[in-house]
Design a protein around this nucleic acid. Structure first.
Lengths: 346, 346
DNA sequence: CCCTTCACGCGAACCGGTTCGACAACTGGC
DNA sequence: GCCAGTTGTCGAACCGGTTCGCGTGAAGGG
């Protein structure tokens, strides 16, 4: 079932079959139909490896996603799903690459062995040697997220600074005076993850501008850590009345910690943050949050990458998104008596 | 930077370079080192397409996952992550394929164009034409899930019947007499999704055996649907004191619905079900549930597939898992007065 | 009626690896 | 001293497509 077989059965040459399929040279209706009949009959499909070898394009995009061992969040799933879906629309497959500790191995595999035409990177760091590497080789890549100096790159990113600030403003507008930030784990911050850094900046500056008393915390990417973190927050300053979370995976634990401490959301305590929309709706009460438009971002990333592949000399494009806060049910006015809330039992 | 270039610079033939790399024929230490030096110097990596074309193996596994448009659950993310991780350990890449409405296109693309050596399928249906198709072509595939007649197939599955029954038994042991099942959407049931069917069976039979009053409900794969579903359950039989959910995505909404109805979990109402462990811990209170060992299943699936690829004539293998129920905080003894619970307001 | 033009199809080369058969040089047994 | 076996290397063929240059027959212009 290779092209030679088709050619033989149709009584033409291999090149004619190729041209009939690609349309890059005229083929008479007669022969075209003859060929098509044979193809349909045998269910022939051209071999992808051979095609890739011949024309240098694999029709595959690489998606570099966080290493195993970290906890996956719903947001990441949404990214993956939307990237795959968008890629399919452009007739590209998606090859998953875990960028683990030995980022070299799988990374080199993708690029060095030319398994993909281009790559989409997630979980960007402010200083990201993967990206430096790609830029140096002028390899077609698009980031979901942006580095400290994003000007020369292709990316679709979120304005984490503005989003965190918007959360603070929202809480300040409701009268909250003592708030906390639940950030990603310290490990992530040290590693330079942009969302953790820019979110922290935005939070800190906005709180200062509004004259709020603000504390910041790092929290593990899982529910139990979230619970511990809330306990710590209420221990450090029982008068805290609201928090902002950049940590989606900890959200369930945060709610649990508040419930355990006898704080009712949103009556006694307000919670907001930056979370993928669909996941903000899975908690009770639903989270008022800046919705990360993961689906849109995945689509945009693919769109940019395809454009870059089609026009190798095009100037870098990017999209900086700053979705508004979706009002749901987890924030409310601060108590007028901003002292310690209802006693933590015993 | 192709193999000919390396050969020229090292002063040997192309075949010698190939043998030096693959080790399939002896090469003298001298030449090997000469070649290795050139390779290191130029950072050469063999082209994957060419290699695939030559030896007929792509070193890529296909992962067929649910079509976009459906709601992704955390379980699916865990599957994807663990499959990718396990595949990397065996030196395989993973190609994602959405098996959408036009299952043909992306499916044919994977198989017909020989982009992958084998495939792993998720979201299996009792009657699954994709699988019939694969079996007919003797294409190396492994299912995460099993069909109605799984004997000739390779799969790693969950004993949904037993798991649902275990949930019912657990509730019955706690004294609950009126329970409900929150199943996947009716669309899924009609489509023949095995978890929905087998879970329903297990639930129904176990409830009958224990003499419980049981109702079953279909529920959309999202939080709002879960809330609506709970309202319906409590409306239909306010004396219901417990439910079993097979629907992970609805879990948040289920909790919300119970809270809205003034039922406290687990004091007034017990909740259990079949849910991926890590996600059972994100809700408040943590869900007592049969933990889907997604990570283990992904690893096993890859292991089976690799074995099948290495031994094309091997007899089908499979693993049927039935993890125990993890006791957490969402179930408790039934009230001794099993009439209508605390009044649904108004 | 001759010469150009064009549509159509063919053969060969190429993409970058792998693998087979052949062969030279060296080793060792008898 | 000859033959058998081993080791190391090479050239050529092959995997299954794409693409370039050329040839042929028919159409069209003068």
């Amino acid at each position: 079932m290779n092209i030679g077989e088709i050619a033989r059965r149709a009584g033409v040459s291999r090149s004619t079959v190729s041209y009939a399929l690609s349309g890059k040279r005229p083929v008479s209706d007669d022969t075209r139909q003859k060929i098509q009949r044979v193809i349909d009959e045998l269910g022939y499909r051209p071999n992808a490896s051979a095609r890739a070898l011949a024309n240098g394009r694999t029709s595959t995009l690489g998606l570099v996603f966080p290493p195993a061992g970290t906890h996956y969040t719903g947001m990441q799933l949404d990214f993956i799903g939307s990237v795959v879906e968008a890629a399919a629309a452009y007739d590209y497959d998606v090859l998953l690459s875990p960028s683990g500790a030995d980022s070299d191995r799988s990374f080199q595999r993708l690029l060095g062995e030319r398994r993909v035409d281009g790559a989409i990177l997630m979980e960007i760091r402010l200083q990201d040697d993967r990206i430096d590497h790609l830029v140096a080789e002028n390899f077609p890549a698009v980031c979901i997220g942006r580095t400290a100096q994003p000007d020369g790159d292709w990316w679709v990113g979120l304005d984490h600074t503005a989003l965190a600030a918007a959360c603070v403003d929202h809480l300040a507008d409701l009268g909250h005076r003592r708030i906390a930030l639940v950030n990603r784990p310290e490990r992530m911050l040290r590693a330079g993850y942009e969302s953790a850094h820019r979110g922290l900046d935005g939070f800190t500056k906005a709180a200062a501008e509004r004259g709020l008393t603000a504390r910041t915390y790092n929290c593990g990417d899982d529910a139990p850590s979230g619970q511990v973190c809330v306990e710590q927050i209420l221990h450090d300053d029982p008068a805290t009345t609201a928090l902002v979370t950049l940590n989606e995976a900890a959200l369930g634990g945060i709610y649990r910690g508040l419930a355990a401490a006898g704080r009712h959301v949103p009556r006694d305590f307000s919670v907001t943050g930056v979370v993928a929309g669909r996941w903000a709706e899975t908690v009770t009460p639903q989270l008022t949050a800046a919705d990360v438009p993961a689906e849109q971002m995945g689509h945009l990333a693919v769109e940019l990458l395809v454009e870059r592949l089609d026009h190798p000399e095009a100037a870098p494009h990017h999209h900086l998104l700053a979705p508004p806060i979706s009002l749901r049910a987890s924030t409310g006015p601060a108590h007028t008596h901003p002292d310690a809330g209802p006693g933590s039992n015993a």
